[in-house]
Computed example of a mutant assay.
Amino acid sequence: MNIENLVGKFRKVITENPYVFNSIVEPMRNEVDSEFESNKKMLAELKSKFEEYQKECEEDDEYNFSIDHYNDLKLDLMTTEYELEYLSQRNFVLREMQILYAYKNVEITLKRLISMAYPDTSLRELHNWKALKEASKNKGANLTQASFYQQIDHLRCVCNALKHSSKITQEVKSANIKEFNGKELFCDLSLGTFFDRVEPLISDFYISFCASLIVPLGGCKQSWLESFEPYVNPDPEIPF
């Protein structure tokens, strides 16, 4: 195999593998976030008006209490609270979609990279995460030694949990992922914080893994990594 051609193919996969799904989801998330903040501000104002009206009625026996005005304020409060819950659920779904897509895209990309390096590999052999680890190890490229492997494995755990429900599974709890520690259910905020932390590491994970695929085939790990130095993140756990 021509190692230079392989390096070129790897580079193309990595540089042309931007997270395009984000470009679709982010505008929707921004819209939901904007609506959420607007309604949150409105709720605070309504609560203040409602509490002020209640206080005036309690302190002044002769205050001209209006049941209609009271009910209108109460209804506005309830409506705004429902709207916030609805927006929160929409944001949850968008975050869920981002995480599910991100992990499935990781699986697909890893299959592609391994099959490029070893064309004789059957895609049927690479049917899940365990199989990907075994196949790479057999080729002399240990997937678990790639930079940011732990974070990507956490992405897998969260993805698997979300496929079934919003309940945080024992697998996720055992992984000790900081965004979900002490929680029983996923929420839009915890999923968002987790995704925003892990997603930027995916490209660097690919770069590191490609390095381990290149070496057994006679390629130079150092020159490969140096070619990406301008934007490769340092991994405090597994240095290059």
Rank of each mutant, 00 (worst) to 15 (best):
E107C: 10
E107Y: 12
E107A: 15
E107S: 08
T109D: 14
T109G: 14
L110E: 12
L113H: 04
L113R: 04
S115D: 04
M116S: 09
A117P: 09
Y118A: 13
Y118E: 11
Y118D: 13
P119T: 11
R124F: 05
R124W: 03
L126Y: 06
L126S: 01
L126M: 05
N128V: 03
W129D: 02
L132C: 09
K133T: 01
N138I: 00
A141D: 14
N142E: 13
L143C: 04
L143P: 01
T144V: 09
Q145N: 15
A146H: 14
S147C: 14
F148L: 01
Q150R: 13
Q151S: 09
Q151A: 04
D153N: 06
H154G: 00
H154R: 02
L155S: 01
L155G: 00
L155D: 02
R156E: 00
V158C: 00
V158T: 08
A161H: 08
S165H: 08
I168F: 12
Q170S: 15
Q170W: 12
E171I: 04
E171D: 12
A175E: 12
I177L: 05
I177A: 06
E179I: 00
F180Y: 10
F180L: 07
F180N: 03
N181R: 15
E184Y: 03
E184A: 07
S190Q: 05
G192I: 04
G192W: 01
G192F: 05
